[in-house]
Amino acid sequence: MTLKHLVALCLAGSLGAAWGRAGDPQRPLPPWHAKAGVICHDCHQKEKPTTAAVADESCMVCHGDYPAMAELTKHLPVNPHAPPKPPHAGPFACPECHHQHKPAVVKCLECHPDFKLKPR
């Protein structure tokens, strides 16, 4: 199944009419997730989450696994989703970089400030 198919399935079936349909106004989403109708439960697996915990599997339902993401970002000067080579740390959990209620960061830049990567 391709990433396009996964996204279509996510948009068509998993976005129910639960609390926070357009997101919690106290916790706005990035425009692309808000437009897709992502709700709290889609990421947090709870109707009214009280913690920021989000499992990678929640992200992978729509965005694909690490190999799929590495394929999508292979054009970057440094591929942040490519499997790290030992003794390098990682792979890192998706929410380490991709925050949804605050700006994203590039964790790689903590140790590699010369990398030409921008958060999304």
Rank of each mutant, 00 (worst) to 15 (best):
A82H: 04
G90W: 00
A89R: 13
A18T: 13
H101R: 06
K116V: 14
C94R: 00
I39M: 11
Q45V: 14
R21S: 15
L9H: 10
A93V: 09
L109N: 01
Y66V: 08
Y66C: 02
V61N: 10
W32A: 14
D65R: 11
C62F: 12
E57V: 10
V54G: 00
R27Y: 08
L29P: 00
T73M: 14
M1Q: 11
A104L: 01
P87T: 01
C40W: 01
R120N: 15
K74F: 07
H99Q: 11
L3V: 15
D114R: 08
Q45Y: 13
A18P: 00
H99P: 01
H112V: 03
H33C: 10
P77N: 12
C97W: 12
C94P: 00
A36K: 03
H44M: 04
L117K: 01
C59P: 02
P87K: 07
A12T: 12
P67R: 09
C40E: 07
M60E: 06
A17R: 15
L72N: 08
H99F: 14
P25C: 02
H41C: 09
H41F: 13
N79H: 06
L117F: 02
R21P: 07
T2G: 01
A12L: 14
R27H: 10
C62N: 12
A52R: 15
H44C: 05
A22Q: 11
L72I: 14
P49D: 08
A55P: 03
K102T: 13
G13S: 13
V106H: 00
K46Y: 04
W19A: 10
Y66K: 02
H98T: 09
P49M: 05
H81P: 00
C111Q: 05
H44D: 05
A55Y: 08
D65Y: 08
P77W: 03
M69I: 07
P87S: 04
P87M: 06
A36E: 01
C59S: 08
L72R: 14
T73W: 13
C10K: 06
